[in-house]
Structure formats: C-alpha cells, structure tokens
Design a protein around this nucleic acid. Sequence first.
DNA 1: TTGTATGCGTTATCAC
DNA 2: GTGATAACGCATACAA
Lengths: 342, 342
Amino acid sequence: MRKKRTTIYDIAAKLNITASSVSRALNNSNYVNENTKQLILKTAAELNYKRNTLASNLRKGHSKTIGIVVPRINQNFFSNVIAGIEEAAYQKGYNLIICQSGESHEKEVKCINTLINQQVDCIVISISADSHDYKHLKNVIDHGIQLIQFDRVIEELETLKVINDNEQASFEAVSHLIEQGYKRIALLEGPQNLNIFVQRKKGYLAALKKYGLPLIEELLLENTLTKERGAEATRKLLNLPQPPDAIFASVSDFSALGVLEVATVMGFKVPGELGILGYSNEAFTELTSPSITTIDQCSIEMGKTVAELYFQEMDNKEVITDHKIISIKPKLIVRSSTLRKG
Amino acid sequence: MRKKRTTIYDIAAKLNITASSVSRALNNSNYVNENTKQLILKTAAELNYKRNTLASNLRKGHSKTIGIVVPRINQNFFSNVIAGIEEAAYQKGYNLIICQSGESHEKEVKCINTLINQQVDCIVISISADSHDYKHLKNVIDHGIQLIQFDRVIEELETLKVINDNEQASFEAVSHLIEQGYKRIALLEGPQNLNIFVQRKKGYLAALKKYGLPLIEELLLENTLTKERGAEATRKLLNLPQPPDAIFASVSDFSALGVLEVATVMGFKVPGELGILGYSNEAFTELTSPSITTIDQCSIEMGKTVAELYFQEMDNKEVITDHKIISIKPKLIVRSSTLRKG
DNA sequence: TTGTATGCGTTATCAC
DNA sequence: GTGATAACGCATACAA
C-alpha cells in the first residue's frame, strides 16, 4: 500500500546538490542561490514532494499542533469553540488534535497522556464533570506544554484561562426577570463541583440581594442537567403551596425546555404566569412557542480568543504571565418566555 | 518554557543498561528479562517518561493518525460523524486531526496537503460544495494514504465510501406522503452537482412513478438550502393557481422550517392542508408545532462505520478491495407534520 | 553560497 | 536476553 515518498535527498540527487541546500530552499532561507532555489522548488513540485512534518517537527522540537480535550465534540457549545480555534489556528499553520473525555475523568487522563506523547505545543481543555483531581494537568505543565483552560476551569490551577463571566450573565438574567415583575424566582442549579455553576448561583443570589428579594430555599433545586430532570424539578416546583412565578434553568436550555413542556401541560401561561429563562442559546430556543429567553455564550468567539491567547503567549514567552484570565461577556437574549412588559 | 523531557536514554543511564532494552520493555517485547522489564517500567513511571510519538512514528513509518476534512465542524451532522469516528479510533489508539474546508475548494486542497505532510495514515473526507476537481484526492492515493469518502462523495473516484442511501430514504419519504393521501407533492431540491441531492431527487421521482402520480415541473424548485430560501420557495408554491398539498424539503430541516413558518403565516393547516417533510433530523424538528417529519441520517453510526471500515482494510491490506461502498439506511421519522391518517 | 556532520528519540537488525 | 549500530527525514552549526 504505502509507497515510498520523495524526500529532500531524492531532490538533491536529481540536481546533484546536497540535501542541506534543498532543505534551505524549501524553508525559504536566504543562504541559497536564488536560481538554485527556484530550480529546487520546481523539481520538488515535479516530484510531488511533501515535507515529512513528523521528521521536521522531531528535529525542531515542536509540533505546531494544538491538542483539545472536551467532554463531547458533538455538543453545540464545544463544536463551536473548536470551530473558532480551528479557524484561528489554521491561519498560523497549526493543526488540531481533538479528543473527547466523555465526561469521564479516567478518559480525560488518557487523552492528556496521548497529547503529551504527540508532543503537542499546547493543550486546550474544558474539564469533564466528574474530574476529581488534576495531577494530569500539572503533568502537562511539567512537560513544558502550554495549558489553556476554557469554560469549565479549575480555578486554583494557575494557567491561562478563557471563561465566560457566568456570574455577571446570571446576575443580568435574574435582574431582567425581576424587572419584568417576577418575584418568586426558582433556580435550577448545576453540580456545584463545577465552578461555572457555582458562579451562576452567585449571580442569582446577587441579583436577589440587589433588588431586596428574599432567598427562598425551597425554590433552589439541584441536579437538573437534562430535559427530563428539568421537567421533574418543575413538577415539584409548580405543585408547591406557593409555586414560583419564574424559573431560571441556569444549567442548560434543555432543562428549560423541560420546564416549558411541564408548564404547558400543567396549564401555566408562559410568560404570563410563569417566566422561563435558559442558558446556552441552543438553536431550538428560538423555535419553541413561546420562544425561550436565554444566554448566548459567544462560543465561536471564545474559540478564537483561546487560539489568539496562545499565539500571544508564544510571541512574548520571555514575560511571565502564567495565569492570565480572559473573561468573555455572555449576551442575554431576551425572547417571549420572559417578556411581560413592553 | 519547554523543559527537557526524559528519554529512553535517561532511563537506560539510570539503570546501567542500554536504550534498546528500555525500548523493548516499553513495547512489551518478550526479548527482555521479566525482572528488568518491571524495573524499567517502574523507573519510567518515576521519571514521568512519555514516549515521543513523533520519533516513534517517524521510525515506524506511520502516524496512527486519521485526518478528517469536513465543510464545518460545528454542523450537527458532521460533528456527530466525527464523534463517531473518534470513539472507534480512540479504542484502537488512533488520533484525529481535524480540518474544515469551509465549503471552499481552495481550502480543501490546503487541508489535504497539510494532512499529507502530517503523514496521516488515512484521510476521511466529505467534499465541499464548490469542489470542482479532484486532483488533490488523487494525490492522497498517490501518497499511499487510505482515502475514505463519506456522505458527499465523488462517485467516479474509486475509493472506500460510506454513504447514506439517499435515494431509498427519499423514496420512502415520498411514499409515506402519498400513503397519507397527498397527491401534489413539491420538491425542494439541492444543488445537483452534489450527488446526494441527485439521489434524493431520484427517490422522489421513483416514488411518484410507483404510485402513478404525474411529475409536475412547476412543483420542483432548486436552490433552497437555507431557511430563508425554503420560505421563499414556499411563498412561490403556495401562491400557485394549484398549490401543492405537500412539500418535501429534501435539502434540509432548516429549509423545512422555512416552509412551516410561511405555511403557518399564510394560514395553511399543517398537516391537514399541507404536509411537510424535512431531511436530517435536526434537534429542533421535534420541537416545532407541529413537529416535523424528517429523515435521520444515523450520523454517529456513520462515523463508527467509517472508522471500522478503515481498520478492516488495514487488517487485510493484501486483498484488493479498492472501492468498497457501505450504504447506511437512513430512518424515516414520522411526526405530526405529515400525519393525516392514524 | 554550499557542503559536511550531527542529532532529534525511537525502533529494527544485527551480533554476541 | 542484551548491547551496539544504523536508519527514519529533516534542520542546523560549522567549516569551507
């Protein structure tokens, strides 16, 4: 199957020169006669020469490759971030190696090891939900590989980070609800071992405080990640003696969808009797009836930012800026599900 | 930044043996004393040794890497296929390098070249919409790299292929419409330079023929890829003296969504007065009212099949099966938008 | 401007 | 079993 590929030696032999000259020409060095350079380039094309990047990288000690570890690549948010990274990386001649951790700590560790083996120059990661320690990430740093965390980050680990300002977004969302006249706002919260969910809760609490609304413990529900769990939680909430008049599904739009379905079935008018607010700006939030107010995480922009951050650090690698943090402001997308006033 | 990584020589030096023994132990060879093997493994772990895959691959002449070229990573169908490939590839210790062609022929060529440079063992591609020749794909084969086309394939190029049986799916979809009593079925078709759209049209025609329905030219509309174009086409169709009683948006669910919106606005009852059928089983088709009947392309399965096909070919590379084609049968998902009878 | 020599880290092929 | 050595393809310090 595999045929022999032409090497710089083949080109050299054909032109009766040495491989070093060929190498120089191919790398557009100035230390080679312009004429022979052209000649070399020409015959390289004729022989259909393709540089062996493996060999080149081995020699140069880097791979011009960025490794990415995400829980799932076929999840809107992540695939958008990756698309953003790809776009920026491509322009710099960098390639992407992509792994999925599948929300498993064990596989995450394996992914990291593969990427270290592959000599990637940089590892970009959004940690998995059940990630319980971070020896493997320390290991990345020990190997001299640039580590960038995004979205779901381990705060105490000092690395470059690109995050959403979850607290601010959540604060604005809840403020919006309050300004629309909602007073008993329930919160569907995510697992509190992931910092993003902690922050979203903080934002919720801050908004209540700012507007002088009391914190009602029975309106706070955990473990509501999926549509089914969101639905379940909603049934519980709407059957309370004093049900909430709004539900902020800070975990995801899927959860919010569950809320909407149960509310509709139980005869609650949205947004009249119940306001609903999701998180992520999934495509479908625009299409439900009523459409769902949500928060856009600017995922493609986030990817681009990650890549740009890496290239910046590359350039001034002398300066020590070990734990720069870039925070991207998510956008509140107001739709029908929370709009009671003009 | 980059620190020196431990090599097999470091391990060898520490144990007063040679690198060859270390290499053998690390590769679990039998030609090394069991005791020393254990000792080597132990100190390798202690020194936090990670194999340099670049060097290893260079020596071995392959990279255990699969290159993927798709128009967009962040498109449901493609990200699902990639997820499927990743899952199967990961188990075999293969990595993925991913590129986006962005529907541009020029970038597609560049992607292919990068992947050849990277010495990938296999290139998996779904060609971009404006791909006009395939020298670059021939080049892949010339370099002895296994080429696998999926979904959007160039038929005359003899490679491994994994495709959806678009014709059959389309045939079943239209048959379903006819069995539901629809008689004037419009077709929103895609660019006919992509084979998948040609096949979907064939299936449409075959179904009409089977049930003895006439082909009505004015019900065939091209260039309807997006939601906006689908809406446009629908306005045209529903304003005909004799409007259709069903529209098959064979291009995409987005197009079907445009149909649904216009139909609703114009006061056509769906499915009573107008049946609507999409293509792709996008998440939102379940959420519209009414929900949209569509075709599921089994994208994750498709990805797995691609990977498995490659590994099979690997194993019996002696046998010449240059252009095996695997066809996956898409599933018709019947929902409210076409259901008039029980 | 060009050629020579060496090394990147690993593995395969010999000998012993 | 183990060690010495060459080779994978390329890039660079150095010599010429």
